[in-house]
Structure formats: structure tokens, C-alpha cells
């Protein structure tokens, strides 16, 4: 347990030091949202209609960033060897990695989303569901990304390949997450997509650490 706590603390420090921490992620999120009106035009009604999709797409892209270095840096430094030698189960380490990544990307995005939703003219009654859907759904994105990061850990320039591997798998999360916000904005019941979204996240929580640990182990010899 102590080792895992150390991993989280280390991730946190690293994320902050290399500038990929919560603040920069939020700035990226804000910039993505800000360029939208320039691409579509200042039509408040149109923006309001596509805002749920935009926020979810922005969350997806913000999660993808930095994924390619998530495991690579540790692999190069020999941190993974160290953890393996210390007898900590690699599956648990992977889950911790995902948690740390989510703490500096998914969580701040979820908390900041209602504010950005305000700028994108989302209906007030959809603000809470928006934050809730991101809070529940972004862990799934991080976990799927973790698998991609483990698969491409030995590649020098794996960033693009990682996106190609990860994006198709994150489609269900995107569908359910964006639907929660859309249904809520229309004043309809959104419990079904929210349940489905939780289901996806839980399933990924089971699969991803095992798959990532397997991929990492096999990449080593």
C-alpha cells in the first residue's frame, strides 16, 4: 500500500513539474472551447446544441495528450524494473498510474466543465449532469488510454499510433457521456445513459490494468 501511495505522490510531483498538471490541462480545455465559435460562428443557439458533444470531445482530446509519456518515462528510467523487483503487483501499479493520471486530467476537467458549459450556452439544468457524466466517464477514457500507452511503450514516436488504437475503443464512452448531457439539456430522464456510462467505466476498471500490465510485461523481453 505504501508503495502505491508513493507512486501516486510521484506522479503528482512529476505531472506538476513537467507542466502537464491540472492547470495546463485546464488551459488546453479552455482553448479548445474558445476556438469553437471561430470555427462555427457566433451562433449561440447552434453552439448550445452541439456543446455537449464539444465538451466531451474536448475531454477526450485532453485525456489523449500526454498519454504516450505516461508509461514511457518510467520504462526508460527503470522505475518499472524497480517496482517489479519490489514485488508490487504490476496490475495494481497500472491502476495507480491511471488514478494519478485521472487526478491531474479528468478530475479538474469535470469540475471546470460547468463553467465552460456556461460559455457554451448549455441549459442550466444540464450543468450538474454534465459534471457528473464527466466525473463518471473520464476514468474510462484514462483507463482505455492506459492500455494504449502500455502497448506503444517501446515505440519512440508512438503518439499518433496511440490515438489510432485508443479512439475507436472510446466511442461507447463518448456516446453515453454526450447523451447524458443532451438528454438532461432537453429536460428528459438521463439515468439510462448514466448507468450505461458507469457500466463502461467499471468494466474498463477491471480490464485495463490487467491488459496494460500484460502488455508492459511482454514489452520487456
Amino acid at each position: 500500500m505504501n508503495a502505491l501511495w508513493q507512486v501516486i505522490k510521484r506522479e503528482w510531483v512529476l505531472a506538476r513539474r513537467i507542466g502537464a498538471g491540472a492547470e495546463l490541462g485546464l488551459v488546453f480545455f479552455l482553448i479548445l472551447i474558445s476556438v469553437v465559435p471561430f470555427a462555427i460562428g457566433a451562433d449561440q443557439k447552434l453552439i448550445g446544441r452541439i456543446a455537449p458533444a464539444l465538451l466531451w470531445l474536448a475531454a477526450l482530446l485532453a485525456t489523449l495528450l500526454g498519454l504516450d509519456r505516461l508509461l514511457q518515462a518510467d520504462e526508460e528510467d527503470g522505475v518499472v524494473d524497480h517496482l517489479l523487483l519490489s514485488g508490487t503487483p504490476l496490475t495494481l501499479v497500472m491502476a495507480t498510474k491511471a488514478l494519478a493520471h485521472w487526478l491531474v486530467t479528468g478530475l479538474p476537467l469535470s469540475l471546470a466543465a460547468p463553467l465552460l458549459g456556461l460559455m457554451l450556452a448549455i441549459e442550466p439544468q444540464a450543468m450538474l449532469p454534465l459534471a457528473l457524466s464527466l466525473l463518471i466517464g473520464t476514468p474510462a477514457l484514462t483507463l482505455i488510454g492506459l492500455i494504449g500507452a502500455a502497448l506503444t511503450v517501446s515505440l519512440k514516436r508512438g503518439g499518433l499510433l496511440l490515438s489510432v488504437l485508443v479512439l475507436p475503443l472510446s466511442i461507447p464512452t463518448l456516446i453515453f457521456g454526450a447523451t447524458v448531457v443532451k438528454e438532461a439539456a432537453a429536460g428528459r430522464d438521463y439515468s439510462t445513459p448514466l448507468m450505461l456510462l458507469s457500466g463502461v467505466s467499471l468494466l474498463m476498471l477491471v480490464i485495463a490494468p490487467v491488459a496494460a500490465a500484460g502488455a508492459l510485461k511482454h514489452a520487456r523481453h
Binding site: L151, V200, L203, A211, G214, A215, H218, A219
Partner: peptide, 17 residues
Amino acid sequence: RAVAILTLVGAVNLPII
């Protein structure tokens, strides 16, 4: 090995997709 893991992850995901 990497492709095998990706294939299985995809196989689990395909019904969900």
C-alpha cells in the same frame, strides 16, 4: 504479444461498441 492483447481488448469492446 502486443497485438494479441490489443485484439482481445477489442474483442471485449466490440459488443459494447
